[in-house]
Design a binder for these strands. Structure first.
Lengths: 343, 343
DNA sequence: AGTGTTTTCCAAAGCGCTTTGGATGCCCAG
DNA sequence: CTGGGCATCCAAAGCGCTTTGGAAAACACT
């Protein structure tokens, strides 16, 4: 089926050394024999054994991802798939593999230690950092290459990350609503132990504060970003005597629930109630076209995955001149879900 | 930071052999020294090098998944995350890792060959099989352990799989609509080069045929299961003079689009137009409660992931008595999206 | 012809584990 | 006292690759 180096070299009448160096493009093997070697390798379907290669080189050419799973609801973040897909295509291009683990919340320390000490991975991607994420400090101190999708506000030492400018995005989104005359604006945020949610909230509050508008604490929510979250909270909001005229939400999935509740109540989104959502540009939830359904702060999570992968690989290879902090700006696209406040 | 076997054995004054056998619970090391060994291993943070271990044993304790990605739209199947999460928790329990690759459609052969010949994985999971999926034949002939999420109708030789009874599910869904008086029923199916979509369609047509109802070919669609697919097709359907009174759709995400179009048109879902959808029970799209929003054929994709992982691991370990074919039945749950036909 | 350089190749060691095939010591039956 | 059986340990080989440190041949220049 497939041969190993020994067999390959024997069939060529060459030493394993020469064959190995030939395949790895060392200069001390002549072009003629290199060609012979590569031809034979292809013909005999030679695939170097990854484990043996790894043992010899000390590298695994594998990046570890740990699935951020909220054990409370067994939730899988819907952005996971697109993020992974983005990262994965970069890995493939560079000849890296991706190792995915899932672990109960709390025993993360254990698994990072495992993955690294056992040499299973050359680097690690951290997703869903909290405000003061211990994993970042842990990996820093271990000296392992890693990169974070998002940031951890309370950590001052520099570390490599790729993030969306969440604060600015939500500030702009809120500014837009204010400029349309909205004053009572609700926020359906993600879980605020996660750093990105805190930043979004800060942006939201900053925009309100700048106009001297006081945020109503009863209109600020922080939950897992499901569709039903959007629905239930909106439904409840709309039942109030003092209801909001606009809603800002953290995910398109939640926004779908918001929309559902608005229409259930007989109101029209974009007329009676305005909605701005963040849009991660998930492949199965397109919100595009000339006039998107939702006005949104838009930033592709797959791009974040790509950038992060590039960054981490550069770090592993010791490329010093690569940037180690990337802040992506979300664009604010106007759709049909926003309109002037009628009050 | 962490020691290797040699250092560990030296610090104990024992041979590597004994330490290794002690850690792996061989009977030829006394209980007393076994305890000494394990204590020391913990104290010194010994982590066996995965690559070296793999080289010696010939196993990698890793399962390969290949992301099913439609390069046409760079689509990532939304069920991917939950499926992976289900499988991953089983892997963790058995000490396996999961290797995820993404590859351009067409070069799958290449990557399977690579993953297996290089010894990177002990087994492989195939997702999104087509009607006659070459990958199944390829892996069968290579003698590598593998399991399929779904089935490939045109392949007659037995192979291990976990699937939902898609035909039966859609047959029952359609029967329900018929029994409610619906006769003009549209089907928004997934891409029909995928086997599951074919089965769903067959179930749909079978139910209609059993009642002597002729399916209108203009009401059968087959596309990538996005939200906008549901929206656009439904919108178009509702603009017809001869519009359907019910819609069956393949994904909750698509169903959200269907709902949006129905309400955009001023109609009410469950009253003017009935909808039944398949529900993979994605964690971020709950459709539950006492009275779910959507009437649905429900089957958790995360469970499929778990079952598949169990099956594959059993296969790798040579457990002959494990079932190698699992057919999950979807339950039909009644929600608020269906009602009697008014015509 | 002799010396120094290049070019091209290779034997052997080593990566960190497991496993084979004993070796050693001890106990008990004959 | 002797030999067999058992429990416990270990030296060394091997997994399939890379890399070190030459060696041999070819070539260039005095």
């Amino acid at each position: 089926m497939s041969v190993n180096l020994k067999e390959l070299s024997e069939s060529l009448g060459l030493s394993q050394t020469t064959v190995s160096r030939g395949l790895n493009n060392y200069s001390d093997v002549s072009e003629a024999t290199r060609k012979r070697i590569k031809d034979a390798a292809k013909r005999l379907n030679y695939r170097p054994n990854a484990r043996a290669k790894g043992l010899a080189t000390g590298k695994s050419r594998t990046i570890g991802h740990v699935i951020p799973s909220n054990t409370q609801h067994e939730m899988v973040n819907p952005i996971f798939g697109d993020f992974i897909a983005g990262a994965s295509s970069v890995y493939a291009r560079h000849g890296y593999n991706m190792l995915v683990s899932r672990v109960a919340q709390g025993s993360e320390t254990e698994i990072y230690n495992d993955l690294i000490s056992s040499g299973a991975v050359d680097g690690i991607v951290i997703q869903g950092p909290t405000e003061k994420d211990q994993r970042i400090e842990q990996l820093s101190s271990m000296g392992t290459p890693f990169a974070v999708h998002g940031r951890s506000s309370a950590i001052t030492k520099p570390y490599p990350w790729v993030d969306v400018n969440n604060q600015r995005a939500f500030e702009r989104a809120t500014q837009l609503l204010i400029s349309l005359g909205h004053r009572k604006i609700a926020l359906l945020n993600g879980l605020e132990h996660l750093d990105f949610a805190v930043r979004r909230r800060n942006g939201f509050l900053k925009a309100l504060g700048a106009q001297g508008i006081e945020a109503d604490p009863d209109m600020l929510f922080s939950e897992e970003m499901t569709e039903s979250y959007g629905y239930l909270r909106t439904k409840e909001l709309l039942d109030r005597k003092d209801l909001p005229t606009a809603i800002v939400t953290s995910s398109l999935i939640t926004a779908l629930g918001v929309r559902r509740a608005i229409e259930d109540s007989g109101r029209r989104m974009g007329k009676d109630i305005s909605v701005v959502t963040h849009d991660d540009m998930l492949s199965y939830l397109p919100n595009g076209g000339a006039e998107p359904v939702f006005t949104a702060t838009r930033s592709a999570v797959s791009e974040a995955g790509e950038r992060l992968a590039e960054m981490l690989i550069a770090e592993i290879n010791g490329d010093e001149d690569q940037p180690s902090e990337v802040l992506l700006e979300a664009e604010l696209v106007i759709g049909r879900s926003t309109g002037a406040s009628e009050t």
